[in-house]
Design a protein around this nucleic acid. Structure first.
Length: 492
RNA sequence: GCGGUCGUGAUCUAGCCUGGUUAGGAUCUGAGGUUCCCAACCUCAUUGCUCGGGUUCAAAUCCCGGCGGCCGCACCA
């Protein structure tokens, strides 16, 4: 609902999570900046993502690669050709259509590889009119979703901002294969920015022209990977899935992982389970808001053999919103770069010569941040952001009950002792209730309050956000108490 | 990109149709008071008509254009 979208965006603007870039000049469509709370939350999400997904294997590692890629590499990857649409607009109603679709609908043959001139010639020859209003079609224009750059003093070196971080992993495959001692499987993770020239960016951080991806590319031997994952450990997990044919009506099936292996590879299901556990167990996403949604042959990219999106049910988006994808890219990328660069990408492992396949776990970081704000923001008479403890931008609010009588001094002392290990925030302005409310609204899971008894007994009150329950804890035990409370599943 | 609709302090909004005092309210924020364990109260204060042009004696208000938001279509390898 637009109302929900406005609620979440209003919180975000007011408190400092996310807002439009270049705001003071009227904004810049498709670009958003993170404020101090948003940036802190995003960093925590990214760190948790890294810890969890790199933790799946000792052979999964983080790398960091350039935002700008030369023409050649993106030609080889298929993006120069396949990331382009040829658009034809109608001189009557102004509607634009994809040129290759118009021609293909008429001839029944794929027209995807035709140039603008060829499309125009076909339209002439076939006498095509606007399918909407029957008006005359204008000559076609090429539209590439990649943002082009001119590099060097003459600008002669053509390049693009990367449309996905994944290419950085493929381009570094050979180097890493060597430095990781010539073994597969291994995984290369990248957290970084990607750029797409979206025609009409909309819906806040859901369709941006510059966005952040967290991706893990896993390189493996397709003949042996099923046996290399510990499928036994996940086979009883029940996954929430919508298959292609049942996706539209919102139907979600609960299927045991072990019962999926007649239609999906074990290694694929294994990673589905790990992703579901990341959201449901580690981050506390409500189960009914989570699902895998299958993409059919027409929907998925040319390089994907299998593609499920991870979707979260969002009130601000009026339903299921895609936040991540699991893509089985086969050997598409390595064989493309092998052909484009003349570098051999095949490897010999255990006497067998293989061109590794790739499983991509792709996460939209901005979409995740938005999804967590939407799902966990509760706005009634009170305003509470019930974020998972580990991605809350501030962990502990530290207050003196009143700002006199020696209470601020002790509170500041405690604040300083905890601030190295936890994100803390000190406040003595306004009533104690007001200060709790301020922390509730930005998702701070715990507050501690120093009162007059604290001076005598050397203890303080800890107050938990969701229950508003309080406990008395000795000052000397605070650090350990909060460490325990931040463990997954810890109760208050 | 096409069409519709909208744009008032940090946030939400009244005023606009029917041009005319210091643009009103609520929340938030800051200072002071109060010292109260869940958005209490009192005093004071800061911040605004999206930008540019036009009409007019006079524009938040009418007209045109830009930028931006949302919705529909298209697009989203």
């Amino acid at each position: 609902m637009a109302k929900r979208y406005d609620e979440v965006m209003s919180l975000s603007l007011r408190r400092g999570f996310i807002w439009p870039s270049v705001d003071i000049y009227g904004g810049f469509a498709g670009f958003y900046d993170y404020g101090h709370l948003g940036a802190a939350m995003k960093r925590k999400w990214e760190n948790l993502w890294l810890k969890y997904f790199l933790g799946l294997s000792k052979r999964y590692h983080l790398i960091d690669t350039t935002n700008i890629l030369p023409f050649k590499s993106l030609k080889a990857s298929g993006h120069v050709d396949h990331f382009t649409d040829i658009l034809v607009s109608c001189s009557g109603c102004g509607m634009s259509h994809r040129g290759d679709h118009l021609v293909q609908d008429e001839t029944g043959k794929s027209a995807e590889s035709l140039s603008t001139d060829e499309i125009d010639a076909e339209i002439q020859k076939l006498g095509l009119k606007c399918p909407k209003c029957g008006g005359a079609l204008q000559s076609s224009t090429e539209f590439n979703m990649m943002i082009p750059l001119s590099i060097g003093p003459t600008g002669a070196d053509k390049a693009y901002l990367r449309p996905e971080t994944a290419q950085g992993a493929f381009l570094n495959f050979k180097r890493e294969f060597e430095s990781l001692r010539r073994k597969i499987p291994f995984g290369l993770a990248i957290i970084g920015r990607a750029f797409r020239n979206e025609i009409s960016p909309r819906q806040g951080t859901y369709r941006m022209r510059e966005f952040i991806q967290a991706e893990l590319q896993i390189f493996f031997n397709p003949n042996t990977f099923d046996d290399e994952v510990d499928f036994k450990s996940v086979e009883d997990e029940v996954l929430r899935i919508s298959f292609e044919d049942k996706k539209e009506d919102g139907h979600v099936e609960n299927i045991r992982a072990g019962d999926l292996i007649d239609r999906l590879p074990k290694f694929y299901v294994y990673h589905m389970v790990k992703i579901q556990q990341f959201y449901l167990d580690l981050l506390g996403m409500p189960r009914e808001r989570f699902r895998f949604a299958e993409l059919g042959e027409k929907e998925r990219a040319f390089y994907n053999r299998l593609h499920f999106d991870i979707e979260i049910k969002l009130d601000s988006m009026n339903g299921w919103g895609e936040i991540n994808g699991i893509h089985y890219r086969t050997d598409h990328d390595l064989s493309g770069h092998q052909a484009g660069s003349n570098e051999k990408m095949t490897v010999t492992v255990d006497g067998e010569r293989v061109l590794p396949h790739v499983l991509e776990l792709s996460f939209g970081v901005d979409r995740n941040i938005w999804a967590f704000l939407d799902v966990f923001y509760e706005k009634n008479e009170k305003s509470v952001l019930r974020l998972p403890r580990r991605i809350a931008p501030i962990t502990i609010g530290v207050f003196p009950l009143v700002s006199k009588g020696g209470l601020p001094e002790l509170a500041i002392e405690i604040f300083e002792s905890l601030d190295d290990d936890f994100e803390c925030f000190y406040d003595e302005a306004g009533s104690i209730g007001k200060r709790y409310a301020r922390m509730d609204e930005i998702g701070t899971p715990f507050c501690l309050t120093v009162d007059y008894d604290s001076l005598e007994n050397k203890d303080v009150t800890i107050r938990e956000r969701d229950s508003t329950h309080q406990k008395r804890v000795p000052i000397s035990e605070l650090s350990q108490t909060f460490k325990d409370l931040l463990k997954t599943g810890a109760g208050f």
